[in-house]
């Protein structure tokens, strides 16, 4: 358990630094990949909904504290996304190459929808327009799907063998 917490803490630190620095230069169509979200959905599909929700909540809350605005937005949406995607754990074979593609894309769509639903719930209508919502969801789903495809293999291996394997 402690090894897994250490593993996810390290992943969080690396992701947050990459996301706030050099990922800015990798923007396509004004959108950059959400590495934290990709790790949340992949950990959910590998370990189930409870782990998915826990990792989503922890990653989201730390991200919220760094953003400093709408604190709880990422914790809420990443937790629920992890929980929903975690339900797929027993329904699919985790060594299939289609897993990261489906989970990366679907997880991002779910996350975007939850994010905008939560903002509407608290009355933050001004943050987006319907056009920007649609293009953001489409572009980030595609981008995150590609990132998921890249990092799924090492994450899968760390989950099944080696020092950090899940118990």
């Amino acid at each position: 358990m402690i090894r897994r917490i250490l593993f996810y803490s390290g992943l969080f630190l690396i992701s947050i630094i990459l996301q706030s620095t050099i990922f800015h230069y990798l923007k396509i169509g004004g959108v950059k990949p959400d590495l934290l979200l990709v790790i949340v959905v992949l950990s959910a599909v590998l370990n189930g909904r409870r782990t998915g929700a826990a990792v989503g909540f922890a990653f989201g809350l730390l991200e919220d504290l760094l953003v400093g605005k709408y604190i709880g937005l990422q914790a809420l949406t990443k937790m629920l996304t992890g929980y929903i995607i975690g339900n797929l754990e027993r329904k699919i074979f985790s060594d299939n190459v289609l897993v990261p593609i489906v989970v990366g894309g679907l997880g991002t769509v779910i996350h975007c929808v939850l994010q905008f639903a939560a903002l509407l719930c608290v009355g933050a209508y001004n943050l987006f327009t319907p056009e920007s919502l649609f293009s953001l969801t489409l572009a980030s789903s595609f981008y995150n799907l590609c990132v998921a495809l890249l990092i799924y293999e090492p994450l899968y291996r760390s989950n099944t063998r080696g020092f950090f394997k899940a118990v």
């Binding site: 709408y70 709880g72 937005l73 809420l76 933050a124």
Partner: peptide
């Protein structure tokens, strides 16, 4: 409960 608490937090820190 977690969802409600987080929604309150989002509202208060928006």
């Amino acid at each position: 409960i977690i969802v409600v608490l987080l929604l309150v937090s989002i509202r208060l820190t928006g």
